Computed example of a mutant assay.
Amino acid sequence: MDEVRSNNNVVYRCHYHVVWCPKYRRKVIDGKVDERLKEIIREVCAERNAPIEAIETMPDHVQLLVVVDPQYGIHRLVKQIKGRSSRLLRQEFPHLKSRMPTLWTNSYFVATTGGATLEVVKRYVENQRNV
């Protein structure tokens, strides 16, 4: 799924690896919570036309590989996923309210992924004048 995508203004291929954790790194993502969380993430990504390339959870973190329109932005997508999943999971699974003031930490890790290494892209940019 390394296709080039576009909207009205931008042609892009933006793949992001995102990782986030429950508050206090509590091990609460398992069983039915895990299943429902993945459902919610898939719903949000489908609504935002952000194809999921991979998704996996561990009891204390979520890893997501997703393609996001740069005009929408990875921050807005993560914020929407975390917000909706926190609200719905805490409604559906009351034990998530008693142990933590919020479901997720405020922070997350994000990195872009791509076919070319940083060194190759840097060399390409630096050599543009010589072409």
Score class of each variant (00 low, 15 high):
Lys23Phe: 01
Gly73Trp: 00
Arg26Tyr: 09
Gln80Ile: 10
Arg129Ile: 12
Asp2Trp: 12
Arg129Gly: 15
Gly83Pro: 03
Val4Ala: 05
Met100Phe: 03
Lys27Asn: 14
Arg99Gly: 14
Val44Leu: 08
Asp2Thr: 12
Tyr124Ala: 10
Lys97Trp: 04
Phe93Tyr: 15
Val18Asp: 01
Tyr72Pro: 00
Asn8Leu: 00
Ala116Asn: 08
Ile74Asp: 00
Val33Asp: 00
Val11Tyr: 02
His17Met: 15
Arg84Pro: 03
Ser6Gly: 11
Pro101Met: 08
Val19Asp: 02
Tyr12Cys: 02
Leu65Asp: 03
Leu103His: 01
Glu126Ser: 05
Asp69Asn: 11
Glu119Tyr: 08
Tyr108Ser: 07
Gly31Glu: 09
Lys23Val: 03
Asp2Ile: 12
Ser86Asn: 11
Lys79Arg: 12
Cys14Tyr: 07
Gln71Tyr: 04
Tyr16Ser: 14
Gly114Asp: 02
Gly115Ile: 13
Glu39Pro: 10
Arg42Thr: 15
Leu88Gly: 02
Leu65Val: 10
Tyr72Gly: 01
Lys27Gly: 07
Glu47Gly: 08
Val11Ile: 12
Ile41Met: 11
Val131Leu: 11
Val125Tyr: 09
Glu126Thr: 04
Leu118Pro: 01
Arg129Trp: 10
Ile41Pro: 00
Cys45Trp: 00
Leu88Glu: 12
Asp60Cys: 11
His61Trp: 07
Trp20Phe: 11
Asn130Ala: 13
Val131Pro: 00
Met58Leu: 09
Asp30Gln: 12
Gly114Thr: 02
Ala111Pro: 01
Ala46Gly: 09
Arg26Gly: 07
Glu119Thr: 14
Cys21His: 06
Trp104Ser: 06
Met100Ser: 09
Lys38His: 07
Thr113Gln: 15
Pro22Ser: 09
Leu88Val: 10
Val19Thr: 08
Arg13Asp: 13
Gly31Val: 09
Arg48Met: 14
Ser6Glu: 10
Arg36Leu: 04
Asn8Thr: 00
Leu77Arg: 01
Glu119Ala: 15
Pro51Trp: 06
Tyr72Asn: 01
Leu96Thr: 04
Lys38Ile: 05
Val121Met: 09
Asn130His: 14
Lys38Trp: 02
Arg123Asn: 15
Asp30Ile: 11
Val44Phe: 03
Thr113Trp: 08
Trp104Val: 07
Tyr108Asp: 05
Gly114Cys: 03
Arg99Met: 13
Asp2Gly: 14
Glu47Thr: 10
Ala116Met: 09
Val33Leu: 03
Phe93Asp: 06
Val4Arg: 10
Ser6Leu: 09
Asp69Glu: 04
Val67Gln: 01
His17Arg: 14
Gln91His: 09
Val120His: 10
Gln91Ala: 13
Ser107Arg: 08
Asn106Phe: 06
Ile55Leu: 15
Val4Thr: 14
Leu96Ala: 07
Gly115Gln: 14
Ile81Lys: 01
Thr112Asp: 00
Arg123Thr: 13
Gly73Phe: 01
